[in-house]
Amino acid sequence: MNFTLKIWRQKDAKSKGGFQQYKVTDISSDTSFLEMLDILNNSLVHEGKEPVAFDHDCREGICGMCSLHINGHAHGPEQGVTTCQIYMRQFPDNSTITVEPWRSTAFPVIKDLVVNRGAYDQILQAGGYVSVRTNSVPDGNAIPIPKADADESMDAAACVGCGACAATCKNGSAMLFVAARVSSLAKLPQGRVEGIRRAKAMVAKMDELGFGNCTNTGACAAECPKKISIAHIARLNREFLSAKLKD
């Protein structure tokens, strides 16, 4: 398969970026999107040109490191998968593919397609953890947890923190990410006890870092590679508002 790639190139955070076109030829349909970029970079290096910088790590959809806005979609046209899980057979042969970095004030471009997603780490550091002493592993039946709660917590915990939600949201809102973290802990007994402090601290940090206000468009959930539901945002709203009412 042959493709024309329209890729955002930017030397560094301070430089002005722009699109550059590249041709890739004889690409196997079973090549993953990131492997296709590896092939492009290989040829660029051989030509003595600067390779395209892009984020990647596990390449099996669990680390949340890959990003990329491909043909108007975060993580490409396929729903419920990360960029590393899409393959070139999903694009028409001889088509033009536009590849852009995440666009959000809180995710500044570092170089080419790489953005700084440290803002999400800062939100997590503000409260996305359990600080109670859990000691040694208790007996599995010592703390009964309803199956529905465990399932909901696990669904929220599937969030890989890739940033697609804020990158997709027209408001640059990080609510789906924050909601997933708050929800995954709020549904379990160990996390429940710190629910109030967590909701307030994470929302305050999210606001401080300049993320936008959620207007319930649902675009974040539609583009989320882990299909996190906006029902978690409703839970975050409940957690936060009830926390504020107790102040």
Partner: peptide, 11 residues
């Protein structure tokens, strides 16, 4: 929200 979205928009 517009400030949070940034000046550079998706192509």
């Amino acid at each position: 929200n517009r400030r949070a979205r940034g000046n550079v928009r998706y192509e």
